[in-house]
Design a protein around this nucleic acid. Structure first.
Length: 577
DNA sequence: TCATTAAGCCAC
DNA sequence: AAACGTGGCTTAATGA
């Protein structure tokens, strides 16, 4: 029924693979292999790896088997070469190690090769530092470090990975999705998110005052800092950036507080509070996303962050610079499409609860999730129950988030009881994951991404908690157990949502390639932005919807649960919501 | 002086 | 509304 999906999309059925080893400098080695990893041709040394890849991509669009997309693909992109498929050996090695309960062991091709041969396993090299003082031995002249790969190791490690993955249901799909994600990440880093430095600067000037010189505070921040000190008394000096000084100042004013968090301060009646709250907000904008950030990360009208695929245990992406996944909402005004182009902003509505519904196969829950607003659909279940004057929809939302995050406010506990009686299978699904975690066990996402095992310290602590000796250790052991339960409870949902998002990305990327110019320029857990010529924007929106359906099918087959995308075609990101 | 930790807020 | 999951990033404070 869905065979065509795999032929066109995921290419797991006998497509040609070519193993790649980058040499020192521009050259390298290639070797054709079968899907099971067996070589089907001789090793070919090539003097110019980039042009060799470009040529074979044009001819046959193979699945490229290489040690690391993050290290190799940027070179290709700089040369204008894009590939359609790859197998990222390091990422797949990580996934396989994780599946075997060996999360975090070295994942380089060399390490995998050493494990194969029973030799000492070398640690992974630390990520290259941006401020590396001098060019390394293997610098290729463009400031790049070239580590030489060994084509024999690449071929052998790939074959072993294929052998290992064959026994794990769904794992080939996970490997393909993770690898496709690595291509998207490198391409997005290369293309960049359209970013108006002028808009950003105007926004900063409006909120903070003119750009200061020489590391001074912007005028508005300095003004607030002065007024904060004054609010605590004459000749008092308080550095608002120092939580310790703020605590002391409030204590001296007869208002002892446990912390300076915004929601704590809001409870206080003191003239410094509104000033501090405003200072915190503006100061964070200035420090994290001010002019320095703009100078560092935006060039040529693009914000070019560095995404780290597989950087989060749950399979979500991380970033290693620029903070692309924490862009403050106020700065969305600076994300502006090129003239004649549009931003297609697409967001998976209520992704995680829908994932839970599909995972658990809970019929009542799935029916609720089969149409538009899931929380509203669920709210019927909460209409007659306690919950402190909230709307039924809010109650439903709290209960769901608590079920997934392990939350424990009094209201949430009560609402959870309702969830348990109305949607027992969904409730039981996350409860089972929590119990497994508390036993010290592993849980997995739909496609097989596996959580890390508990640490040795955790095992020791919780084992000690088994005896009945009174004292503080009992409390910490119980805390550790609950913490692990919360983690695994959340993991199954968050990691499966990440599975879904990766499948969406891979599918969408392929569909956009067919459209031509539109480019994926942003991805944030459950949201994507495509930069597209305005006249293609509706086609892009259609591609996003199709990709969401394909992702659902790949993960959950014929589940009734739908994964609707909220899509806006805008000039500026800020206008999307 | 430099590296590490804590506190805090940003995103989902 | 908030302490309940995953992270990044910045400053102040701490410590070698």
């Amino acid at each position: 029924m869905c065979g065509g999906l795999f032929v066109g999309g995921w290419g797991q059925n006998g497509r040609v693979r070519i193993a790649v080893a980058a040499g020192r400098g521009r050259g390298g080695a290639l070797r054709a292999v079968a899907e099971d990893g067996a070589p089907t041709g001789p090793v070919q040394e090539v003097p110019d790896l980039v042009s060799a890849v470009a040529e074979r991509e044009r001819d046959s669009a193979p699945r490229w088997v290489w040690p690391s997309t993050a290290r190799l693909y940027p070179r290709l992109l700089e040369a204008g070469v894009r590939v359609s498929r790859c197998h990222d050996l390091e990422l797949v090695e990580s996934l396989l190690l994780g599946h075997a309960g060996r999360y975090g062991e070295p994942r380089s091709v060399r390490a995998a090769w050493a494990r194969l041969r029973g030799e000492p396993v070398p640690a992974d090299a630390p990520p290259p530092r941006e401020d590396a003082a001098q060019p390394s031995l293997f610098d290729d002249g463009a400031g790049r470090e070239e580590a030489a790969d060994d084509i024999g190791q690449v071929v052998a490690v790939h074959a072993e990975q294929q052998r290992a993955a064959a026994g794990l249901g769904g794992f080939a799909l996970l490997a393909a999705a993770e690898s496709a994600g690595s291509l998207v990440a490198a391409e997005m880093g290369h293309d960049g998110l359209p970013w108006s430095a002028a808009e950003h600067d105007a926004l900063l000037t409006e909120m903070l005052g003119p750009r200061p010189t020489g590391g001074l505070r912007p005028r508005r921040l300095q003004d607030l800092a002065d007024r904060i000190s004054a609010a605590f008394g004459p000749r008092v000096h308080v550095n608002p950036d120092s939580p310790a000084q703020i605590l002391r100042a409030f204590a001296a004013a007869g208002l002892p507080v446990p912390s300076t968090r915004a929601h704590v301060l809001r409870q206080l009646d003191h003239p410094a509070v509104p000033l501090l709250l405003e200072y915190k907000e503006l100061s964070r904008l200035h420090a994290a996303h001010g002019w320095t950030w703009l100078d560092t990360w935006v060039s040529g009208g693009r914000f070019r962050p560095e995404y780290v695929v597989g950087g989060v245990v749950s399979g979500r992406w991380a970033t290693s610079g620029g903070g692309a996944l924490q862009i403050p909402r106020v700065l969305r005004k600076a994300v502006v499409a090129d003239p004649g182009w549009s931003l297609v902003v697409a967001d998976a509505a209520q992704l995680e609860p829908r994932v839970l519904a599909a995972l658990a196969g809970d019929r009542a829950f799935s029916e609720a999730a089969a149409h538009g607003d899931l929380y509203a659909a669920l709210s019927d279940a909460f209409r007659d129950d306690a919950g402190g004057g909230r709307t039924a929809r809010d109650k439903a939302k709290i209960a769901l988030l608590s079920a997934m995050y392990g939350g424990g406010t009094a209201d949430a506990v009560q609402l959870l009881a309702v969830l348990k009686s109305r949607f027992p299978q969904a409730f039981e699904y996350v409860e089972a994951a929590a119990r497994e975690g508390e036993r010290g066990g592993l849980v997995r996402s739909r496609l097989g991404r596996t959580c890390p095992p508990p640490s040795a310290g955790w095992r020791e602590l919780t084992a000690a908690g088994d005896d009945d000796s009174p004292g503080p250790r009992q409390g910490t052991a119980a805390q550790a157990l609950r913490g692990r339960g919360r983690f695994t409870r959340n993991f199954v949902v968050q990691a499966t949502a990440a599975d879904w998002a990766l499948a969406l990305l891979a599918s969408l990327r392929r569909r956009l390639t067919a459209l031509g110019p539109p480019r994926l320029v942003f991805f944030q857990h459950d949201e994507v932005i495509v930069h597209s010529p305005a006249e293609l924007a509706e086609e892009v929106a259609g591609a996003v919807r199709d990709a969401a359906r394909e992702a659902r099918l790949l993960l959950f087959g014929d589940t009734p649960v739908v994964f609707p995308m909220e899509i806006a075609v805008v000039d500026r990101y800020a206008d999307a919501k």
